[in-house]
Amino acid sequence: MSRQRRNRFRRLDGILLLDKPRGLSSNQALQQARRLFEAEKAGHTGSLDPLATGLLPVCFGEATKIAGGLLGARKAYDTVARLGVVTDTDDADGQPLRQRPVPVLDLATIDAALRALTGRIQQRPPVYSALKRGGEPLYAKARRGETIEVEPREVEVHAFELRSAADLLDCGEPLLRLHVECGSGTYVRSLVRDLGEALGCGAHVAELRRLWVDPFREPRLWTPGDLEALAARGRHCLDACLLPVEAGMASWPQLAVGPAQAARLSYGQSVDGGFATRGPVAILDQDGRALGLGEVDGAGCLRPQRLFSWACSQPPART
Protein backbone atom coordinates (compact mmCIF):
# COMPACT_ATOMS: atom_id res chain seq x y z
CA MET A 1 0.00 0.00 0.00
CA SER A 2 1.41 3.38 -0.98
CA ARG A 3 2.08 5.89 1.74
CA GLN A 4 -0.08 9.01 1.61
CA ARG A 5 1.76 12.24 1.06
CA ARG A 6 1.94 14.19 4.28
CA ASN A 7 0.16 17.54 4.18
CA ARG A 8 2.75 20.05 5.29
CA PHE A 9 0.29 22.91 5.76
CA ARG A 10 -0.83 23.76 9.28
CA ARG A 11 -3.45 25.70 11.17
CA LEU A 12 -2.10 29.15 11.84
CA ASP A 13 -3.87 32.27 13.08
CA GLY A 14 -2.48 35.79 12.88
CA ILE A 15 -1.78 38.82 10.72
CA LEU A 16 1.34 39.47 8.67
CA LEU A 17 2.16 43.04 7.62
CA LEU A 18 3.83 42.21 4.33
CA ASP A 19 5.89 44.72 2.36
CA LYS A 20 4.82 43.72 -1.14
CA PRO A 21 7.57 44.14 -3.73
CA ARG A 22 7.04 45.66 -7.15
CA GLY A 23 6.23 43.22 -9.95
CA LEU A 24 4.05 40.79 -7.99
CA SER A 25 0.28 40.74 -7.90
CA SER A 26 -1.30 40.74 -4.46
CA ASN A 27 -2.34 37.12 -4.91
CA GLN A 28 1.17 36.08 -5.93
CA ALA A 29 2.59 37.79 -2.84
CA LEU A 30 -0.09 36.14 -0.70
CA GLN A 31 0.66 32.66 -2.03
CA GLN A 32 4.39 33.13 -1.47
CA ALA A 33 3.75 34.08 2.15
CA ARG A 34 1.28 31.22 2.63
CA ARG A 35 3.77 28.65 1.36
CA LEU A 36 6.56 30.06 3.51
CA PHE A 37 4.42 29.95 6.67
CA GLU A 38 2.88 26.62 5.61
CA ALA A 39 -0.54 28.03 6.49
CA GLU A 40 -3.72 26.14 5.59
CA LYS A 41 -5.75 29.28 5.02
CA ALA A 42 -4.79 32.82 4.02
CA GLY A 43 -6.28 35.95 2.51
CA HIS A 44 -5.21 39.54 1.90
CA THR A 45 -7.06 42.76 2.66
CA GLY A 46 -7.13 45.06 -0.33
CA SER A 47 -5.29 44.44 -3.58
CA LEU A 48 -2.18 46.29 -4.67
CA ASP A 49 -1.36 46.54 -8.36
CA PRO A 50 1.81 44.75 -9.54
CA LEU A 51 3.50 48.15 -9.92
CA ALA A 52 2.71 49.09 -6.31
CA THR A 53 4.75 48.33 -3.21
CA GLY A 54 4.09 48.58 0.50
CA LEU A 55 1.70 47.35 3.13
CA LEU A 56 -0.39 44.31 2.25
CA PRO A 57 -1.99 42.86 5.40
CA VAL A 58 -2.13 39.08 5.06
CA CYS A 59 -4.59 37.24 7.30
CA PHE A 60 -3.93 33.63 8.27
CA GLY A 61 -6.54 31.21 9.57
CA GLU A 62 -9.21 32.74 11.78
CA ALA A 63 -7.92 36.25 10.98
CA THR A 64 -9.52 35.88 7.53
CA LYS A 65 -12.87 36.42 9.27
CA ILE A 66 -12.02 40.10 9.87
CA ALA A 67 -10.47 40.68 6.43
CA GLY A 68 -13.69 42.17 5.07
CA GLY A 69 -13.63 44.88 7.72
CA LEU A 70 -10.02 45.75 6.93
CA LEU A 71 -10.90 46.07 3.24
CA GLY A 72 -13.01 49.11 4.06
CA ALA A 73 -10.38 50.78 6.22
CA ARG A 74 -8.75 54.13 5.58
CA LYS A 75 -5.44 53.88 3.70
CA ALA A 76 -2.47 56.13 2.89
CA TYR A 77 -0.16 56.18 -0.12
CA ASP A 78 2.77 58.04 -1.58
CA THR A 79 2.70 58.19 -5.36
CA VAL A 80 4.62 59.75 -8.23
CA ALA A 81 2.56 61.13 -11.13
CA ARG A 82 4.14 61.47 -14.55
CA LEU A 83 2.52 64.28 -16.48
CA GLY A 84 1.98 64.41 -20.23
CA VAL A 85 1.24 60.73 -20.96
CA VAL A 86 -2.04 58.83 -20.55
CA THR A 87 -1.92 55.00 -20.50
CA ASP A 88 -4.64 52.40 -20.86
CA THR A 89 -4.13 51.18 -17.28
CA ASP A 90 -3.53 54.66 -15.80
CA ASP A 91 -0.09 53.53 -14.62
CA ALA A 92 3.38 52.88 -16.02
CA ASP A 93 2.63 49.21 -16.70
CA GLY A 94 0.11 50.15 -19.39
CA GLN A 95 0.37 51.10 -23.04
CA PRO A 96 0.54 54.83 -23.91
CA LEU A 97 -2.70 56.17 -25.39
CA ARG A 98 -2.04 59.90 -25.70
CA GLN A 99 0.89 62.23 -25.23
CA ARG A 100 0.50 65.97 -24.73
CA PRO A 101 2.85 68.80 -23.86
CA VAL A 102 2.93 69.78 -20.19
CA PRO A 103 1.90 73.43 -19.78
CA VAL A 104 3.72 75.87 -17.56
CA LEU A 105 2.42 75.13 -14.07
CA ASP A 106 2.84 76.82 -10.72
CA LEU A 107 2.17 75.60 -7.19
CA ALA A 108 -1.12 77.49 -6.89
CA THR A 109 -2.51 75.80 -10.00
CA ILE A 110 -1.42 72.35 -8.84
CA ASP A 111 -2.81 72.85 -5.32
CA ALA A 112 -6.16 74.04 -6.71
CA ALA A 113 -6.43 70.90 -8.85
CA LEU A 114 -5.59 68.71 -5.86
CA ARG A 115 -8.21 70.42 -3.68
CA ALA A 116 -10.88 69.81 -6.32
CA LEU A 117 -10.20 66.08 -6.03
CA THR A 118 -10.41 66.03 -2.21
CA GLY A 119 -13.45 65.19 -0.10
CA ARG A 120 -16.44 63.15 -1.25
CA ILE A 121 -16.07 63.02 -5.01
CA GLN A 122 -17.39 61.09 -7.99
CA GLN A 123 -14.66 58.84 -9.39
CA ARG A 124 -14.59 56.61 -12.44
CA PRO A 125 -12.59 53.44 -11.64
CA PRO A 126 -9.94 52.32 -14.14
CA VAL A 127 -11.03 50.01 -16.96
CA TYR A 128 -8.16 47.73 -15.96
CA SER A 129 -9.38 46.91 -12.45
CA ALA A 130 -10.57 43.95 -10.42
CA LEU A 131 -14.13 45.26 -10.30
CA LYS A 132 -16.48 42.62 -11.62
CA ARG A 133 -19.22 42.82 -14.21
CA GLY A 134 -21.22 39.71 -14.97
CA GLY A 135 -19.00 37.78 -12.56
CA GLU A 136 -15.83 38.64 -14.50
CA PRO A 137 -13.13 41.20 -13.63
CA LEU A 138 -13.11 44.26 -15.86
CA TYR A 139 -9.41 43.76 -16.65
CA ALA A 140 -10.23 40.42 -18.30
CA LYS A 141 -12.76 42.10 -20.58
CA ALA A 142 -10.34 44.94 -21.33
CA ARG A 143 -7.58 42.51 -22.30
CA ARG A 144 -9.92 40.94 -24.84
CA GLY A 145 -10.43 44.36 -26.38
CA GLU A 146 -14.05 44.74 -25.28
CA THR A 147 -15.43 48.26 -25.01
CA ILE A 148 -16.21 48.93 -21.36
CA GLU A 149 -18.14 51.80 -19.84
CA VAL A 150 -17.40 52.22 -16.14
CA GLU A 151 -19.89 54.27 -14.15
CA PRO A 152 -18.55 56.85 -11.68
CA ARG A 153 -19.12 56.19 -8.01
CA GLU A 154 -18.74 58.20 -4.84
CA VAL A 155 -15.52 57.80 -2.90
CA GLU A 156 -13.90 59.73 -0.06
CA VAL A 157 -10.48 61.31 -0.40
CA HIS A 158 -9.32 62.58 2.99
CA ALA A 159 -6.08 64.09 1.69
CA PHE A 160 -4.54 64.66 -1.75
CA GLU A 161 -1.41 66.71 -1.20
CA LEU A 162 1.72 67.76 -3.05
CA ARG A 163 4.91 66.42 -1.51
CA SER A 164 7.24 67.90 -4.13
CA ALA A 165 7.10 69.48 -7.58
CA ALA A 166 10.85 70.07 -7.73
CA ASP A 167 11.35 67.70 -10.67
CA LEU A 168 8.81 69.60 -12.74
CA LEU A 169 9.55 73.18 -11.64
CA ASP A 170 13.32 72.78 -12.00
CA CYS A 171 12.87 71.82 -15.68
CA GLY A 172 13.61 68.17 -14.99
CA GLU A 173 11.27 65.21 -15.42
CA PRO A 174 7.53 66.11 -15.49
CA LEU A 175 6.88 64.44 -12.14
CA LEU A 176 4.72 65.34 -9.14
CA ARG A 177 5.29 63.58 -5.83
CA LEU A 178 1.99 63.23 -4.00
CA HIS A 179 0.45 61.94 -0.78
CA VAL A 180 -3.02 60.36 -0.66
CA GLU A 181 -5.26 59.32 2.22
CA CYS A 182 -8.52 57.76 1.15
CA GLY A 183 -11.40 55.50 2.04
CA SER A 184 -12.58 52.20 0.64
CA GLY A 185 -12.95 51.82 -3.12
CA THR A 186 -10.74 54.78 -4.05
CA TYR A 187 -8.28 54.25 -6.90
CA VAL A 188 -5.08 56.28 -6.74
CA ARG A 189 -4.63 55.62 -10.46
CA SER A 190 -7.94 57.36 -11.12
CA LEU A 191 -6.98 60.30 -8.90
CA VAL A 192 -3.74 60.78 -10.81
CA ARG A 193 -5.51 60.38 -14.16
CA ASP A 194 -8.08 63.02 -13.21
CA LEU A 195 -5.39 65.33 -11.85
CA GLY A 196 -3.61 65.15 -15.19
CA GLU A 197 -6.80 66.08 -17.03
CA ALA A 198 -7.40 69.00 -14.66
CA LEU A 199 -3.88 70.24 -15.44
CA GLY A 200 -4.51 69.95 -19.17
CA CYS A 201 -1.89 67.36 -20.06
CA GLY A 202 -2.95 63.97 -18.74
CA ALA A 203 -0.97 61.82 -16.29
CA HIS A 204 -0.37 58.31 -15.06
CA VAL A 205 1.04 56.67 -11.91
CA ALA A 206 4.77 56.07 -12.24
CA GLU A 207 5.29 54.83 -8.67
CA LEU A 208 2.93 53.88 -5.84
CA ARG A 209 3.58 52.80 -2.27
CA ARG A 210 0.98 52.03 0.38
CA LEU A 211 2.16 53.43 3.71
CA TRP A 212 -0.51 52.28 6.15
CA VAL A 213 -3.97 50.79 6.53
CA ASP A 214 -6.12 51.37 9.59
CA PRO A 215 -5.57 50.24 12.30
CA PHE A 216 -1.91 49.71 11.32
CA ARG A 217 -0.81 53.36 11.25
CA GLU A 218 2.87 52.74 12.11
CA PRO A 219 3.42 49.27 10.71
CA ARG A 220 6.53 47.15 11.07
CA LEU A 221 6.68 45.70 7.56
CA TRP A 222 8.32 42.43 6.56
CA THR A 223 9.79 41.97 3.10
CA PRO A 224 9.93 38.55 1.42
CA GLY A 225 13.69 38.63 2.04
CA ASP A 226 13.11 39.26 5.75
CA LEU A 227 10.74 36.31 5.93
CA GLU A 228 13.10 33.98 4.09
CA ALA A 229 15.86 34.84 6.55
CA LEU A 230 13.57 34.21 9.53
CA ALA A 231 12.40 30.90 8.07
CA ALA A 232 16.01 29.78 7.76
CA ARG A 233 16.41 30.29 11.52
CA GLY A 234 13.36 28.19 12.35
CA ARG A 235 9.58 28.27 12.32
CA HIS A 236 9.41 29.89 15.76
CA CYS A 237 11.39 32.88 14.44
CA LEU A 238 9.05 33.20 11.46
CA ASP A 239 5.89 32.98 13.56
CA ALA A 240 7.18 35.68 15.90
CA CYS A 241 6.57 38.35 13.25
CA LEU A 242 2.81 37.66 13.21
CA LEU A 243 0.38 39.96 15.01
CA PRO A 244 -2.50 38.46 16.99
CA VAL A 245 -6.00 38.63 15.52
CA GLU A 246 -6.91 41.25 18.15
CA ALA A 247 -4.45 43.69 16.54
CA GLY A 248 -6.63 43.87 13.45
CA MET A 249 -9.79 44.63 15.43
CA ALA A 250 -8.72 47.91 17.02
CA SER A 251 -10.96 49.98 14.73
CA TRP A 252 -14.16 48.24 15.88
CA PRO A 253 -15.87 49.36 19.09
CA GLN A 254 -15.15 46.66 21.66
CA LEU A 255 -17.60 44.88 23.94
CA ALA A 256 -16.56 42.51 26.73
CA VAL A 257 -18.95 39.70 27.63
CA GLY A 258 -19.10 37.27 30.52
CA PRO A 259 -18.93 33.45 30.27
CA ALA A 260 -22.70 32.94 30.12
CA GLN A 261 -23.07 35.60 27.43
CA ALA A 262 -20.17 34.14 25.45
CA ALA A 263 -21.80 30.72 25.59
CA ARG A 264 -25.06 32.06 24.17
CA LEU A 265 -23.21 33.84 21.37
CA SER A 266 -21.25 30.70 20.47
CA TYR A 267 -24.53 28.92 19.81
CA GLY A 268 -25.76 31.70 17.55
CA GLN A 269 -28.05 33.19 20.19
CA SER A 270 -28.33 36.90 20.85
CA VAL A 271 -27.53 38.59 24.14
CA ASP A 272 -29.89 41.20 25.52
CA GLY A 273 -27.47 43.15 27.65
CA GLY A 274 -28.76 46.68 27.13
CA PHE A 275 -25.56 47.56 25.27
CA ALA A 276 -25.16 51.27 24.58
CA THR A 277 -22.92 50.82 21.53
CA ARG A 278 -24.76 50.42 18.24
CA GLY A 279 -23.64 48.76 15.01
CA PRO A 280 -20.69 46.43 14.31
CA VAL A 281 -18.51 45.54 17.32
CA ALA A 282 -15.57 43.36 18.29
CA ILE A 283 -16.58 40.88 20.98
CA LEU A 284 -14.02 40.09 23.69
CA ASP A 285 -14.12 37.82 26.69
CA GLN A 286 -13.35 39.07 30.18
CA ASP A 287 -9.64 38.37 29.67
CA GLY A 288 -9.49 40.55 26.57
CA ARG A 289 -9.29 37.71 24.06
CA ALA A 290 -11.27 38.30 20.88
CA LEU A 291 -14.24 36.00 20.35
CA GLY A 292 -15.34 37.42 17.01
CA LEU A 293 -17.50 40.07 15.41
CA GLY A 294 -21.06 40.99 16.27
CA GLU A 295 -23.61 43.72 15.87
CA VAL A 296 -25.72 45.60 18.40
CA ASP A 297 -29.19 46.48 17.14
CA GLY A 298 -31.32 49.49 17.97
CA ALA A 299 -32.67 47.81 21.11
CA GLY A 300 -29.19 47.18 22.54
CA CYS A 301 -29.24 43.48 21.71
CA LEU A 302 -25.91 41.89 20.70
CA ARG A 303 -26.06 39.40 17.83
CA PRO A 304 -23.10 37.25 16.74
CA GLN A 305 -21.87 37.69 13.17
CA ARG A 306 -18.55 35.86 12.71
CA LEU A 307 -17.07 34.08 15.71
CA PHE A 308 -13.61 32.56 15.95
CA SER A 309 -13.18 28.81 16.38
CA TRP A 310 -11.91 29.22 19.93
CA ALA A 311 -15.00 31.14 21.08
CA CYS A 312 -16.68 29.63 24.15
CA SER A 313 -18.66 26.51 23.18
CA GLN A 314 -20.19 25.43 26.45
CA PRO A 315 -23.97 24.89 26.42
CA PRO A 316 -25.95 28.09 26.96
CA ALA A 317 -27.46 28.63 30.38
CA ARG A 318 -31.12 27.69 30.71
CA THR A 319 -33.56 30.53 31.10
Rank of each mutant, 00 (worst) to 15 (best):
D88F: 07
A198L: 11
L307V: 00
V192Y: 08
G145W: 00
P101S: 04
L97M: 06
G234Q: 04
I283V: 15
A282D: 07
Y77E: 15
G298E: 14
S266T: 00
K141L: 09
V102R: 06
R5T: 10
R209M: 02
Y128L: 13
A229K: 09
R144N: 05
T79P: 12
V127M: 13
D106K: 12
L176A: 08
L70Y: 08
A231H: 00
T53Y: 02
L230Q: 09
D194R: 08
G225S: 12
P126M: 14
E173P: 05
R6G: 07
A256V: 04
F37G: 03
L18S: 01
P137W: 02
A232V: 00
V213Q: 07
R306Q: 03
P174L: 12
H44Q: 02
V245R: 11
R163Y: 03
T45I: 03
A206H: 10
V157D: 08
L138Y: 00
V296L: 06
K141W: 02
L114V: 15
F160V: 11
E149H: 14
A140V: 14
P21V: 08
K141Q: 07
P137N: 13
V245D: 07
D49S: 04
V86D: 05
Q123T: 11
T186R: 13
P224S: 00
R153T: 08
C201S: 14
P259F: 09
R220C: 08
V127Y: 01
V104G: 07
H44M: 03
L293C: 06
G258W: 00
A52Q: 05
L12G: 10
V180K: 09
G43F: 02
